[in-house]
Each structure stands twice: as structure tokens, then as C-alpha cells.
Design a protein around this nucleic acid. Structure first.
Lengths: 220, 220
DNA sequence: TAATGTGAATCGTTTCACAGCG
DNA sequence: CGCTGTGAAACGATTCACATTA
């Protein structure tokens, strides 16, 4: 089987494929047998064309005239993208946000397990009740290495983000989720995704303030 | 002055401009007088070319040969994009995530004020301690309208997201931040930004699993 | 007939390269 | 001379249109 590479599949396509996969999981539980690109698109707010092209990056799998078999398409995407693999995460920063993530039940359902939490404040480590092992921040690199943690989630104040990232990279993580508004630099090969709530608020607010300038109506 | 419209400024540019603005704020506090596109870019992980083009969407403001005056550029961006305007937010869903957002101090610093919180569980409303007014979920539309809330933050379980969005739109919000993995549909004119932690984890994990296929080295 | 799969056209963004200015 | 500002070229993703097939 041909192993897919980053180069041959656009990032937006990958992101959409993942949400299609989740949707298919729902359909599967609801015992739906088959769906069309139109139905999937309507449900996800994506054009059917796009769904079809996205799916076709992974090879043919649909039934001409009869849409996609739910089980088959799900398996197809899952296999090609190796989605059922588990990942070990850790959370750095145990403020309200970090604590919320620690106890997030949805992660587990998708194969993500949080195996450690860190904070520079020793009090918090002793106070917080959680099923996850908690450690002081200076042990990040060591624990990440020892437990072979794949992904680090940074939930510290902005100023401490780069330092946290450095320790994670030192420990050998291959991916980082950064909840800070601050850009973090890492070694090549370590992927970073930033989730910037404040930034999204600002973007939304700005968009709301700009002129619409002309109708968006294409056809009447 | 020419009022900028959504059509004439690309979304990615807008997002970058907002982070430039935040960076300038920092520089201003550090009493830095001027910066070049190269410095800004290095700090933000963006190419200098891009910074210059982004800035130039708003008109000329730099000093040829001498970079940008921090104060002037900040004012320029701030004015053109009307960034100092305040916005009223509300949070729907007072689980760990929603509660974390309620107490987020950074929002205030940027002109965002949370003026209401909602949950369908009456117990939570009575239990949670917060400076924000809390209401049962069935009052969403009414309170949003009465307080002229601009933005609704959805922090409920996925299944309840669409319903929450409907109530927000009914109340007249102009923007929604959706922390759910589920797509929400709204009336035209109401902007939605989705922050999907689980999705980001999945995307990161998948990217980590794909082949790099060939070096990325352009020049040696 | 009702859907998929896909080259080709289109659209939008980024990058390039250099003219212009202090 | 250094750095901005900007048309033009390159790139990447989306949309279109239609041939294809159960």
C-alpha cells in the first residue's frame, strides 16, 4: 500500500478529512449504511465538490451513483491516515485551562491519553486532585523522555511558553499544542499548532467591524 | 479616511496584522522607538516580505531605510482596523472550560468584557463563584438582547452547540466562538470561528505520522 | 439516473525582485 | 546604503464541468 506523504495532501484537505472521519463515526453508530458527498458536505458546511476531491486524495472508494458506504469510507480514511494510533500527551501549566484539559473526557475517546501534568508552582501539584501524575516543571524533559510522550500541551502564561516548548523539545516530543498568543520556535521536525483564544476574539471582533462592501449574492 | 472592507484585505493578512499589533504593544511598553519588518518577522515567525505587504494594505506608514516607528505603526493599524473598540461577550456552558474562560484576565486587557454566563444546570449557576452574572440557559436570547452582547462563546458539549448558537443568534450576537468540534450554522452576517482542541490534536497526530518524503532543504 | 472521480480553469495568497525613498 | 512598498510571477487550494460508472 502506498504510504501518504505530507507533500501530496494539502493541509486543509487533511483537516477536513479528519472531521469527515468523526462524522462517519457518528453515522456508523446510528447504523447509517451509506452517505453521499452532498449529505456529508451539508452536515459539515463544506461543498460536496470539496468532499469528493478530499476523499479522492486517498484513492477511489465510493460507489458511482450510490454514494459512499459509511463503514468502508471510515476504514479507508482511518487506514490511510493511520488514525487509530494512540498518543501520549502531557499538559504544562495547571491553571484553570490546564486543569480543564487534564480532565477532558473526549480526548480519551479518540485515543489520546494524558500521562503527566506539570506546573512551576509546587502548591498546585499538591493541591490539585487528578488521576494524572503531576510533576514540578523542572522535571519536564526527564519525564517526557521516560514516558515517551508524543505531544505537549502548553497552557502557561505567554511569557513562559517558549521556555516550556524548549523543555518539551528537549524531552523529545514530536508535536506541541500552544494555547498561548505567543509564537514558539522549535527544532525542525517538531510540529506546532497554536490555539489562540484571545487572537480569535480579536479577529472576530475586527471582522465584525469591517464593511461588508457589496452584496454577496451571486445569483438571485 | 477610506474605510477598509472585508473584500480588500485577505483574512490571513488580517490575522497577522493583529499579532503585529500585539507585538507593537509590547515594544511600546519596552520603549523601543522603531522596528524593521525583519525584526517583527523574526519575532513572529513570519517572513519580512509578508509583514511589509500586510502593513501596506493599510497604506504607507514606514520610513524608507529606517523601519517603522513603533508608536506610529501601532496607531496606524489600530485606527484603520478600529481595534480599540470594546466588545461584550457571554459564555455558554459553565463546565471546567467555560469557567476558565469566565475568569480569564487577559480578555479584559484587550477590551473584551464578559457580561454574562449561562448553563442549563441550575445547580452550577448557584454554586459557581464569579463576578459575572450567571443565568439559566433558557434566558440566553433575552439577556443577550437586553445587554447588547456582541459575541457568544460556546463551551457546551458538542450536541448542544447548535442549539446554543440558535439562541445567541436569536438574541442578536454578531459573532460566535465555538469551542466544539461540531460545525454550527448561523444566519448570514453572524460570523463563527471554531476552536477545536480535539481536532487540533488529531491533526497534529496525523501530521506526525505522515512521511516527510524528501528533504525540505532548498539551499545548502 | 444519480452519484463519484478528476483534469482544467479559477481564485486567492505568498514570494520574488526591484524601483523608490530617506 | 538600508529598508519600505509594490507590481509581477509563482504557488496552492478551490471550484467547475464533465466523463465515468453502478
Amino acid at each position: 500500500m502506498h504510504k501518504i506523504s505530507k507533500k501530496e495532501i494539502p493541509l486543509p484537505t487533511l483537516a477536513r478529512l479528519l472531521s469527515v472521519y468523526r462524522l462517519l463515526d457518528q453515522y456508523e453508530q446510528e447504523k447509517v449504511a451509506s452517505v453521499s458527498s452532498t449529505e456529508i458536505g451539508a452536515r459539515l458546511g463544506i461543498k460536496p465538490d470539496s468532499i469528493r476531491k478530499d476523499v479522492s486524495y486517498l484513492g477511489e472508494v465510493g460507489n458511482f451513483g450510490g454514494g459512499y458506504e459509511v463503514v468502508r469510507l471510515k476504514a479507508h480514511i482511518g487506514t490511510k491516515l493511520d488514525l487509530e494510533r494512540g498518543r501520549k500527551l502531557c499538559v504544562i501549566g495547571l491553571g484553570p485551562l490546564g486543569s480543564a484539559i487534564l480532565n477532558d473526557a473526549d480526548l480519551r475517546k479518540r485515543g489520546f491519553v494524558i500521562v503527566a501534568g506539570f506546573d512551576s508552582n509546587i502548591n498546585k501539584i499538591e493541591t490539585i486532585t487528578s488521576s494524572v501524575e503531576l510533576h514540578p516543571a523542572h522535571e519536564i524533559a526527564e519525564v517526557v523522555r521516560r514516558k515517551s510522550i508524543d505531544i505537549g500541551v502548553i497552557a502557561v502564561p505567554g511569557k513562559a511558553a517558549q521556555e516550556a516548548a524548549n523543555r518539551l523539545v528537549e524531552g523529545g516530543v514530536k508535536g506541541i499544542i500552544n494555547f498561548t498568543s505567543c509564537a514558539v520556535r522549535t527544532a525542525p521536525g517538531v510540529m506546532v499548532r497554536t490555539i489562540d483564544f484571545l487572537g480569535e476574539c480579536a479577529l472576530l471582533s475586527t471582522l465584525m467591524g469591517l464593511e461588508d462592501s457589496g452584496t454577496n449574492l451571486k445569483k438571485l
